[in-house]
């Protein structure tokens, strides 16, 4: 780990004032401390924000407001989250391990870095870690890598489960900068790698995520997260799907489909949503929608299976959600 100055911020303003290009905020530490030890991240200053009063989960103007420092486990077990945004609780519950969920925060989870092992090994060519060096994964071993949103410069998958759920919930991220607070719709938070894979999101170096608003949409409470991985727990997604829709008179209302494990960023499948909207659910419809979700996938040799796997994952999430809503309606919806 490169030597750094450790600063403990007592207020949000103090934290923002201390921020800068060679500075990182640290709260749970689960990404930053790990990557600093690997010398993949080498900030000169780290600002400890763990003591800031940003961990509340409370009613906001548009729905539930989750503080950036709320621990993943606290959000997952919050009864309001479980009842009104089940996809979020399920996504968090499926991520990492109980200990890590007790440490990781909402803000840190959003900005976690990829698990691409070429990025992490500190040696291989990696445009994300060392811009301009190339991408060892592109022609290397890339079973875990993205099939959507990649470029020849980077195909690293975004690792977050939570962000996929938040995408399906149209979450709004509130960011405090030196001058003001601004809001970023979650769909605008993450960037495609294109030819600058080291630039991953639209939050500035001197900005701090303060909370995330979860709008009270009609579909939020009817949502589901399905995650497929290489072992039954404690593994990153090969593919995951956050699906949300409300059945209205036997038809799918407004729908959200977001994918994890297959995209270079949490992946919103708008084409698939369009296929579903207004249609009566049927196996054929699900097939069409899940096919649409993977439209444009560009698999490579080791990760080609992810296309089919992700389709199936979407289908499973859809089916489970349908069954759940069916059960609520006494089976009449179908």
């Amino acid at each position: 780990m490169q030597p750094f100055t450790y600063v403990r911020a007592r207020t949000v303003d103090e934290a923002v004032a201390a921020a800068g290009s060679d500075t990182r905020f640290v709260a749970g530490g689960t990404t930053l401390v790990d990557l600093m030890r690997l010398e993949v991240m080498t900030p000169r200053t780290i600002v400890d924000i763990s003591g800031l009063p940003l961990d509340a989960i409370e009613e906001g103007p548009t729905g539930l407001r989750v503080g950036a420092l709320a621990r993943n486990s606290a959000v997952a077990r919050d009864p309001r989250v479980r009842a009104r945004y089940p996809v979020l609780a399920q996504a968090l519950e499926s991520g990492a391990s109980p200990q890590l969920r007790n440490m990781a925060t909402v803000g840190g989870n959003l900005l976690q870095r990829t698990r691409c092992s070429y990025f992490r090994d500190g040696v291989s060519a990696c445009n994300k870690r060392a811009p301009g060096t190339g991408c060892a994964a592109f022609d290397g071993y890339h079973r875990m890598h993205a099939v959507l949103g990649g470029s020849e410069h980077c195909i690293a998958a975004h690792p977050s489960d939570m962000a996929v759920a938040l995408l399906a919930l149209d979450a709004i991220v509130h960011v405090r900068g030196p001058l003001a607070t601004r809001t970023v719709p979650i769909a605008d938070l993450f960037l495609l790698p294109k030819d600058t894979p080291h630039v991953e999101h639209t939050i500035g170096a001197n900005e701090l995520i303060v909370h995330v608003d979860l709008p009270a949409t009609p579909f939020a409470a009817h949502s589901r997260y399905v995650k497929v991985r290489d072992r039954s727990e404690f593994a990153f997604a090969l593919a995951s799907a956050a699906v949300a829709f409300e059945l209205r008179s036997g038809r799918v209302g407004e729908a959200r489909i977001a994918l994890g494990g297959v995209g270079t960023r949490p992946w919103r499948a708008r084409e698939a949503e369009a296929v579903l909207a207004g249609q009566p659910p049927s196996p054929e419809l699900v097939k069409k929608a899940s096919a649409a979700a993977l439209e444009g996938a560009r698999p490579r040799k080791d990760n080609a299976f992810k296309v089919e796997l992700a389709r199936r994952t979407v289908a499973r999430a859809f089916e489970e959600l349908l069954v759940a809503q069916d059960a609520k309606d006494g089976g009449g919806a179908r």
């Binding site: 698990r115 092992s117 070429y118 992490r120 090994d121 040696v123 291989s124 060892a136 022609d139 290397g140 071993y141 875990m144 290489d230 072992r231 039954s232 727990e233 404690f234 593994a235 990153f236």
Partner: peptide, 22 residues
Amino acid sequence: DPRSARIVTRDLSDYHVPVETD
């Protein structure tokens, strides 16, 4: 990785030892 001979799955996140639920 046959190009470098380096093990790519070189930590306990990429290399999946069974967990309790397995």
